[in-house]
């Protein structure tokens, strides 16, 4: 299965699976059709909501978490989405490489939390801050594919995201 995130406001993996009844209300309200209720297993279809960020990321409209009737997705604000954390590979980012003549900033421009989750260090170098909620938009738009979002379920404790 390709890498995927849980929708904004999702509880811990175990708690979310215990609550989700696969009603699909979150997928039905999603403006961007990014939430997929695909089965967790080929023979035993749990059908919990997934966001395949490389196919279609979450733009943090927060409609899904507001409609979830079971509380599998908590009704939270954009800043509390808690889907994961983006990691930007500076060594390969065109903004960090010298003499490229490119001022990309695509991740910064497209970030739903522009200026909070991704800031411009020294006014021109994109940097992921600890306020990143892991919506996956930067991973989706990055023209050189140097951003990877680690889903919240794979983040140990409260590890701060950031830049390598």
């Amino acid at each position: 299965m390709p890498p995927f995130l849980r929708p904004p406001g999702a509880r811990s993996e175990k708690d979310m699976k215990a609550r989700c009844v696969s009603c699909g209300l979150c997928a039905a309200v999603c403006n961007y059709a990014c939430i997929e209720m695909t089965p967790d297993h080929i023979f035993f279809g749990g059908g919990t909501p997934k966001i395949f960020q490389r196919k279609s990321p979450c733009f943090l409209c927060m409609k899904c978490s507001a409609v979830c009737p079971t509380g599998a997705l908590g009704n939270v604000s954009m800043e509390e989405a808690g889907m994961g954390r983006a990691c930007l590979d500076r060594a390969r980012c065109v903004d960090y490489r010298r003499n490229t003549g490119i001022m990309c900033w695509t991740c910064y421009e497209r970030c739903p939390l522009k200026g909070k989750a991704i800031v411009l260090k020294n006014g021109y170098l994109p940097e992921v801050t600890e306020r990143c909620v892991g919506c996956g938009v930067c991973e989706y738009v990055c023209p050189v594919a140097v951003i990877t979002v680690t889903p919240a379920r794979d983040l140990p404790g409260n590890r701060r995201g950031g830049n390598t």
Binding site: R19, V21, L25, P69, G71
Partner: peptide, 27 residues
């Protein structure tokens, strides 16, 4: 919107009682 586990009719909820009982037993 929804399906036979939970269905929403303009804000009026309808749910499969067994799925609610399972959520109660699991969560």
């Amino acid at each position: 919107s929804g399906n036979f586990f939970f269905f929403n009719i303009a804000g009026i909820p309808l749910a499969d009682p067994l799925s609610v009982l399972q959520v109660a037993a699991g969560a």
